[in-house]
């Protein structure tokens, strides 16, 4: 009885700790350019993107045909996504004081252009773009990626 209560308490504390650390959502970037229809998938819900929308870690974005979206991240990293593009912000951390951090963006389809900000200025490996087949570091301060659907099916 006593032990099970203790275990429960520990489990509860652990849970609350986990939720406290992940539940605190921080804006990582803002939608600055938009044309056509772009959806955002967040916590199981899909909503249409509007200009000025705040973006958070783990957000997934999908542009329709003839659509595009541009994001300005907190560190001034800029990302542009072309039509039929699916990408997500896997991770993002930028410490204003030290001007350091890291970002991971993954693209599963479409086209993505990236211009590095303070993160890449301070660490060439800080910003990475993951495609289904490879990981690219934005060492050249500008980067563009194209993922064709046909390449995804190649084993």
């Amino acid at each position: 009885m006593n032990i099970s209560f203790k275990t429960l308490l520990v489990a509860q504390l652990f849970c609350s700790f986990i939720f406290a650390s992940t539940g605190y959502a921080q804006t990582v970037g803002i939608v600055k350019t938009l044309s056509g229809n772009v959806q955002i998938m967040r916590a199981g819900a899909t909503v249409n993107v509007v200009l000025g929308d705040k973006l958070f870690k783990a957000d997934k974005l999908q542009t329709e045909s003839n659509s595009s979206v541009g994001i300005l991240f907190n560190d001034d990293t800029r990302v542009g996504a072309g039509p039929n593009t699916a990408f997500s912000i896997e991770s993002y951390h930028f410490d204003i004081k030290s001007q350091q951090g890291q970002a991971d963006i993954s693209i599963t389809n479409g086209t993505l252009a990236l211009v590095g900000g303070k993160l890449t200025a301070n660490n060439l490996d800080a910003v990475k773009v993951h495609t289904p087949t490879s990981t690219l570091a934005a060492t050249c301060s500008t980067l563009s990626v194209k993922v064709d659907p046909i390449f995804k099916e190649v084993p």
Partner: peptide, 24 residues
């Protein structure tokens, strides 16, 4: 932040243009 190994694009890929244009 420019690496000496950065490749200069020879010509713009027309498919990349919408993404480039969408850059804020």
């Amino acid at each position: 932040g420019q690496s000496p190994f950065c490749v200069k694009p020879v010509e713009a890929d027309p498919e990349m243009e919408p993404a480039m244009a969408a850059l804020p």
